[in-house]
Every structure is written in C-alpha cells, then in structure tokens.
Amino acid sequence: MATPAARSLRVAVLGAGSWGTALAAAASRRHAAVLWARDPAQAAAMAATRENARYLPGIALPQALEFSGDLDAALLHLRHADADRLIVLGVPVAGLTALCGELSRRLPALGLEDTPIVWTCKGFEADTARLPHEIMRQALPGATGGALSGPSFAREVARGLPVALTVASASAALRETTTRAFHGGALRVYASADLVGVEVGGALKNVIAVACGICDGLALGTNARAALITRGLAEMTRLGVALGAQAETFAGLTGLGDLVLTATGELSRNRKVGLEIGAGRKLADILASGITAEGVRCARAALERARAARVELPITEAVCAVLFEGVAPMTAVSALLARDARYESGNAPG
C-alpha cells in the first residue's frame, strides 16, 4: 500500500521586525510563507527589493517569501484545503495584547479560529506583569498556543548560520507543526512541554544581560561576569519553579543557553544598554538614541511578579535600582557584594 503524501504547510508570520523576518525567511525555504508588516509601505518595499532594509539591511530574502501589508490578506494565505497551517507572532511583548485582540476578531470571521499560534516574544508585560501565554489565554482563550524561543540573534539566523531553538507547548500537535515549519538545514528545533519555564527563562535572561553589561562597562572583570551569569541563572530558576516551571528547563537552550548568548554576545541590545550605563550614560539618553531592550521594559514587572511569589531576585532588584531609582551602578554592585554569605544551593547540608 502506498504511503499517503504528507500534507503541505502554510505559515503566516505576523510582525516584520528582525526576528519575524528571519523566521519567515527560514520557513519560506521549505513551505509557503507570508510575512505581514503593519506598515504597508514597508511590505511593498520588501517585496520590491527582497530586503528588510529597516531591520536586516544587507541580507537578501528568499524569492519564495511573500509579503503583505494587509492582515486579512496575510491570514487568508493560510486557507488551503490540503494544507496544515501555522501563525507565528513576531511582535514584542508590548504589542502582543493588541495583535491578539485583532486576531480574536479576524480569525473566526475568516474560518481560521482553530489555527495553532506560536509566539516569539520574551518578557513580562510592563503594565500587568503577565507572561505571553497569560496574555494569549485571556485574549484568545480557545487557541492552541506555544512559545518559540532560544539563544538566537536574528541577523545570524537570516544569514543561515547554525541555531537551535525550543518550541514549548502543552499541545503535541503544535510542537510537531512548529518543528515542521522551521527544523532543517542549519536550524534545529527541540520540543518542550514546559511553557512557563521557557517563558521565564526568555524574560529574565534579558534583565541579567543588562546586569552583565553594567559589570563589563564598569570593567569589573570576567570573574564578576561569570558570577552574575551563574547567580542570574539561579534567579531565573527560583522564579520559574515558583511559577510552576521545571527546574531542568533552565539548564537548557531557553535558560542557560539564551542567558549566555544575551549576556556576552556583541549583538545583544540588553548587554549594550548595560555597557552604556556602566560607562556613565543615562538610561533616557541611551533609549533616545534608538536602542530598545526587553530587559529594560520588563525588569520592574519581573520584580513585581517575584515579590508576589515571595521569591528573592537580588540581581534583578539591583538592575531596577540602577535603571529607575537613580542608584549609581557601583553602589548597586557594592550592595550585592555586601549580602550575607549562604549555601550556593540554598539548602544547608544535613
């Protein structure tokens, strides 16, 4: 008996920033993919030049990739009788609530309400301290969703350099569909059922990366940076477990892997903000220069969530003091160093 042919897959990536563009390019090499840009002029320019000059200048985009400045048209790309489908939300946490609201109205009207949705944003929502899956659950309560995360700079992915990501969801079908969409060539996708752990790791690593940048800006040495990364990982794990995550998740790609990349990589915007602060610049001036960093946006929300869960996050607290309370970077460092000695694991030996 002949084996039935595998169904094709159609992918709509919503959000034409650097990461959304890189993922849309990757998907288009194997599947029918469309990239939606909120600005129709940007979509038209990308279609004409095969380049996202705003976010990924100098990188050629595949000829197979389609572009749209019309959200309904981008979603209608998914409607095909013999194809599976996937929506990828490539917007930051700050834009997730609004986009989910639009989808809650449009998907049922287009007959696409059962389409699985995966998001790529990392962080706590600034005003509500919600994680992305909590935003999704409220805005699209019936949707099958998951997070695609991991140590990844968009420019390297767009250039086709090797990268490993994790898709996290309670739905095995969503994990399989997302893996089909992106796994292949230089891009590997691993699966996880620990959505909370993957999201907490993706959120807090940005805050710890700001701390590491401050450390390097102050020229405190590589020993100090290693200590911050290690103790930062402990903070991520403590908060994640308190919110229902599995501790082992933080030893993986979306915990330690993403933390090391963001805290040390030259392309890291969070590290860049920390470096500038360590060198004496004011946060308002740094942000006014055009640098955006999720660690700055979500640091206070992360601390708020930790306090509600009765979890200590001393590095995150120090970052918030420097960013928002006018505390001098060296004063914050001195406060961390002055903390009482303790067992590394948090538990005294019996």
Score class of each variant (00 low, 15 high):
Leu261Ile: 02
Val91Tyr: 11
Ala2Arg: 09
Phe67His: 12
Arg105Trp: 09
Ser171Glu: 03
Lys122Asn: 01
Leu287Ser: 08
Ala109Arg: 15
Arg281Ser: 13
Ser268Pro: 06
Leu275Lys: 10
His133Cys: 07
Phe250Asn: 04
Ala45Thr: 13
Ser192Asn: 09
Leu9Met: 04
Thr222Cys: 04
Ala164Glu: 11
Gly350Lys: 12
Asn223Cys: 08
Leu96Lys: 06
Ala332Asn: 06
Ala48Arg: 15
Arg29Trp: 08
Arg130Cys: 14
Ile59Asn: 05
Arg225Pro: 11
Leu256Ser: 02
Arg38Tyr: 04
Ala154Cys: 12
Arg238Val: 00
Met330Cys: 00
Thr222Glu: 15
Val327Met: 10
Val118Asp: 06
Leu86Thr: 00
Ala81Met: 05
Tyr55Ser: 14
Gly257Tyr: 05
Thr331His: 10
Arg130Val: 05
Ile59Gln: 06
Gly15Val: 09
Ser334Glu: 15
Thr166Cys: 12
Lys272Val: 01
Thr177Gly: 01
Ala181Val: 11
Ala247Gln: 13
Ala227Cys: 14
Val163Phe: 01
Ala129Met: 03
Glu344Cys: 04
Leu187Gly: 10
Leu195Ala: 13
His31Phe: 09
Ser192Asp: 14
Ala154Trp: 12
Val91Thr: 14
Ala242Ile: 08
Ser8Gly: 15
Gly185His: 08
Ser334Asp: 15
Leu110Ala: 10
Ala81Glu: 15
Ala263Ile: 06
Arg231Phe: 11
Cys298Phe: 01
Leu218Glu: 08
Leu96Ser: 03
Arg175His: 07
Ala301Val: 07
Gly17Asn: 08
Ala147Gly: 10
Ala27Thr: 03
Ala25Tyr: 02
Ala41His: 14
Glu317Gln: 14
Arg50His: 03
Glu125Asn: 00
Leu313Glu: 07
Thr97Ser: 09
Gly280Gln: 09
Asp82Tyr: 04
Ala26Asn: 01
Arg85Ile: 01
Leu283Lys: 05
Gly111Glu: 08
Ala37His: 14
Cys320Ala: 12
Ala335Ser: 13
Asn206His: 12
Gly20Asp: 11
Pro141Asp: 04
Glu304Arg: 15
